[in-house]
Design a protein around this nucleic acid. Structure first.
Lengths: 101, 101
DNA sequence: GCTACAAGTTACTTTATGTAAGTAACTATA
DNA sequence: TATAGTTACTTACATAAAGTAACTTGTAGC
């Protein structure tokens, strides 16, 4: 019988942020909204996974999706307040990386 | 040809911290050294992966492994300065989680 | 009808993770 | 002497996640 001293907060957060690409996608959106293709070309990620991750982030309320019915269609993604609140965390990781990697 | 606006610092850090269990293992070690079995029972992780992750963390200089040739053998793991420097990052994630999850 | 475009989706392969059993080296107990 | 117990791992195998590339949908212009 395991007596988990697992921190549920950290654990839940890492389920999200720990998934591959998630943090990098959020990073791309920190300086404003971007289109699907823009994110896709700014990261070495495939459309398949980008689509999956954006759906997860939308479901979690971290990213907002806006559809423009133009021709061809345009879709913009931007961070919600919940997403923007991750800015400090991401900056912290960058700083650690700068100091130690 | 992709013109990646990928932040190499964040990217490299997330390759490490984004791996499943890594951050949770570091969290377990924030308050002092622990033995293999202690970590294993404090997280829902298998020995197989824990062993793999600890090796990665040791290789990256985040965790230090100390062997005590007792009977039965005892092995302790503790964070290096590089590992301890992640405390702020982890606290940041916890706080975000508290505020938004 | 044919081509072009953005934003996906589908089908398939490779890699990572999960699960359970096994190993090494030694001690303590019957 | 034989058996069981201990820690810290490994190994073998099954399942889930990620990677790759081709295909779809809706619309416009030629």
């Amino acid at each position: 019988m395991k007596e988990l001293s697992l921190c549920p907060r950290l654990s839940k957060a890492m389920e999200l942020l720990g998934k591959r690409w998630t943090t990098l996608i959020i990073y791309q959106l920190l300086d404003g909204s971007k289109r699907f293709n823009e994110i896709e070309s700014s990261l070495p990620i495939s459309g398949r996974l980008l689509s999956e991750r954006l759906k997860e982030l939308e479901r979690e309320g971290i990213v907002q999706r806006t559809l423009f019915s133009e021709v061809p269609v345009r879709v913009e993604y931007n961070l919600t307040d919940k997403g923007m609140a991750l800015k400090n965390v991401i900056t912290g990781i960058e700083n650690w990386s700068k100091d130690w990697l």
